[in-house]
Design a protein around this nucleic acid. Structure first.
Lengths: 234, 234
DNA sequence: CGCCGAGTTGACCATGTTCAAGGTGGGTGG
DNA sequence: CCACCCACCTTGAACATGGTCAACTCGGCG
């Protein structure tokens, strides 16, 4: 039961793109989680706030596992418009790529610590070690699930629903006693939700008026009516 | 060189979420493509127009490879709003899931033929056969890439850019002599782009006025100025 | 204290949606 | 073979949501 949480070596809290329990592919027995090949060849790295970890188009030589902090994965249009695809937190794996180059950029939202893995080394390992393949596969599919839910959000939800969804999602990973601490700016939130900074701000203010949340500080959000919020997030 | 195209057994045309050339993970030598374990255990199935192949929440017992026709993958909100995440065409693999249940629905856009694989059988194979794992991995990552590009589209592009992107993307797979045949309705296009049917219609009409396209029939689009179109799609 | 970046608020505006009416074309049955 | 029908599509006008632009506030820090 608890063994399922150890699919990827990490603190056991759910990643932002929450991996469903039992989401191992193929299904693994508890004893197999001992192998944990991802732990061996990694090197620890630190990134200061807003530092780029890799850019869209760079050769994909490493991939990463979050230890602490928050990282955003984003894409840009030629005119600078930005879409944040995901925020990564402790335990999340990112930078796995189909081709030889990254198709997305990754930047530290705040001071962050990651473990970097040489892609080639892990590829070689993965060819021998089926368990490792499965771990990577599971990480990928979790990311795919998240991307799909995110598309539904971006394409078919209004501003209030978007903000409510974000709060609900982020609360799962960063709520202490009903109060969220935001690692990211309003601009980050806006770019994650496909909105503008002003709309995010207005929506939060309106939610405060409606007693759904309280805003004790700009980076702190207290969830007063979590049920109603979850309801908005539908 | 050419062997790279045979990552998945299929007609060699690029899938809608185009898999980049050389997108094998880990990188495979030409000789290895002989194995092609996906070919063995499949059973051919036909689905009539609008028939559901699987629904969000169903137990994920199979996954599929397109032989002919077009399939849409979509998610729904409780009030019926729909977001189409992808259209699948010959060669595309879909229905790979992280958990034990599908997280998306798949429906035939027109009469379609697919090969179904028992998930358990292939899982078992994949644990032995690293090549197979890699093929699946590559398929997944192609899907992830597509989902990310789609998020950027949904979150940060206007109606004209969206329609132009759709035309450009779909032309790659269904253009004969500069004329696209649409398998899907305007509603499908709208739900793919996060727009309404009226906006899609108006945008196409405007593009016709601007001599970017011609509309000889409702399901036929002639690309008159492909460069300008690609430019709009940025 | 004053500056500066981040956030908020307001007024106006643009894009895309909604609602409603009319057109078109492919298939069916008389 | 033609008429009708129905689903699909187009068009128009009013409307709403969210974006833009600009002013102002707040809080942290030199």
């Amino acid at each position: 039961m608890a063994a399922h949480a150890a699919v990827l070596p990490s603190p056991s809290r759910a990643p932002l793109w929450s991996m469903p329990p039992g989401a191992v592919w193929p299904t693994l027995g508890p004893e197999e989680t001992e192998t944990d090949a991802l732990r061996a060849p990694g090197t620890v790295q630190h990134f200061a706030q807003d530092r780029r970890i890799f850019a869209d188009g760079d050769p994909a030589e490493h991939f990463y596992r979050m230890v602490s902090g928050v990282v955003r994965a984003c894409k840009f249009l030629s005119d600078g418009r930005r879409q944040i695809e995901a925020f990564y937190v402790a335990g999340d794996v990112f930078g796995l790529e189909a081709g030889t180059h990254y198709s997305i950029s990754a930047e530290a939202v705040n001071n962050s610590m990651v473990v970097a893995f040489r892609r080639k080394a892990v590829e070689a390992l993965a060819r021998k070690d089926t368990l490792l393949s499965c771990q990577l596969m599971t990480a990928m599919m979790g990311a795919l699930d998240h991307a799909r839910r995110h598309s539904l959000l971006l394409g078919r939800r209004g501003a209030v629903e978007k903000v409510a969804s974000f709060l609900t999602e982020w609360a799962r990973q960063s709520a202490v006693a009903g109060t969220i601490h935001l690692a990211m700016t309003r601009q980050d939130i806006a770019d994650y939700l496909g909105l503008t900074i002003e709309t995010v701000s207005r929506t939060l203010t309106q939610m405060e008026r409606d007693r759904l949340i309280a805003l004790p500080g700009t980076r702190q959000i207290r969830l007063c009516n979590r049920a109603a919020l979850a309801d908005l997030a539908a």
